[in-house]
Design a protein around this nucleic acid. Sequence first.
DNA 1: CGCTCGTTTGATTGTGATCAACGCTAGTGG
DNA 2: CCACTAGCGTTGATCACAATCAAACGAGCG
Lengths: 244, 244
Amino acid sequence: MPCTGVPDAILPGGLPAGSASRKAFCQMIDGQRFERSAGAMLKVEGEATRAVYFLISGWLAVSKSMQDGHRQIIDIVVPGEFLDPGSADVETSAVEIEPLARSIYAAIPREEWLRVAGAHPELRWYFDRNLAASVSRMSERMLRLGKGSAESRIAYALCELCLRSSGFGLVEGQAFHIPMTQQLLGDYTGLSAVHVCRTLRRFRRNAIVDVSDHMTIVIRDLDTLAEIAQIDPDGLRREIIPAA
Amino acid sequence: MPCTGVPDAILPGGLPAGSASRKAFCQMIDGQRFERSAGAMLKVEGEATRAVYFLISGWLAVSKSMQDGHRQIIDIVVPGEFLDPGSADVETSAVEIEPLARSIYAAIPREEWLRVAGAHPELRWYFDRNLAASVSRMSERMLRLGKGSAESRIAYALCELCLRSSGFGLVEGQAFHIPMTQQLLGDYTGLSAVHVCRTLRRFRRNAIVDVSDHMTIVIRDLDTLAEIAQIDPDGLRREIIPAA
DNA sequence: CGCTCGTTTGATTGTGATCAACGCTAGTGG
DNA sequence: CCACTAGCGTTGATCACAATCAAACGAGCG
């Protein structure tokens, strides 16, 4: 019983075909499957949440806003990742969730998730690792929000999104697409859209990255990019990407 | 069998005296108990971690640093909270942990934690809520790091630390102590120590808070402070403090 | 075609970092 | 008891980075 429409590549690692936990997982996510197009908000701050999400395809942005409308993207979710929008008060979401591209996801009622996770420790383990990776990413981004320059923030964001969205790792020459406008990248890095534009242009001028039609990125000079981002490509991968 | 030296108030909520889960919890944290004084680093970035921590008394700062030595405090841990320093690669810590005051904590080997949590769903539930609260706090802080003014960041930090460190909630007139220098508060809010000083002075001038000997804080004008911090005191409590 | 949305560029402003110096307090040792 | 030191807080002067304002351009689209 394969999960309908779910590529194997994004299934939780370590779930051999035919295993009981894989069967349970597929049954769980086949339950409540939804599809949304870019921009069609799927949850707003303060709304009730009784589900955790598993993203099958597309991209989600998890964000919070200030009263003046300025928004900060807290995290981005790519296929194969879980998302738990609950806060300390598990019933209420403290964040807004918005698809950045047409997205397909499963909304798993919390009680069901707890039941399945209780019965299948491998799934719980996968979920926990996913969460730990998410916290690590947030930590890296917080460090740069607090102490990094605009260049460092954007270079890091590019590295992170490349690592997470592409099967190949963080390498030169491979094109990958980020379904975000410069405005959104600004919301992600804590910068204004104008400054994102200028910074990207500088990267392009210096032959560090190519940026073509609407955020298709090619890394040209990984060493320089990693130096600006203040990362070690391999170390970063180990830190923010759950091993298969 | 009470936990030796552990006040009831910080035990995971919902563990009635004499219950099996409480017994298991106490046995678990009585295993590996440690004590450190302020500044005595207890884990550095990149070091191996095979334990999760439960803080019994004191304060811990979880931080990351840039190559130039600038540090960002990612989170602060107060008594009764768990801390899991693992990253996506569970074996390696991506953060540095430093006691801000003399602290007593239990280091629980990961396998033991998994075993106990598996046997006692209430403990797992408590841990998960703790983690959700921690993520919520990080989100709030990220929002302000990215989009908030210096005043907003500091006002928020004061509100958060008041809520978390004091039994009484976020109220006017009650004194509470934060065992941090202005430098550390700067590392927490992404500001320089100098600017923390100026901002606090402005708050004092405007009779919003009192700050006396080494960070003993009294909120004088909660409405204004909440407005600057852009919070709703009750909403914030629900979002970042796990209910008992 | 005109419209909207996103990007690009320039000019100006402002917030907070940095550098530097000084005061205060507590702790240390003569 | 009095230097002497070290750490923290305070204040001033200057500077730089990124926000903001404003305008124009290009592409996709009804």
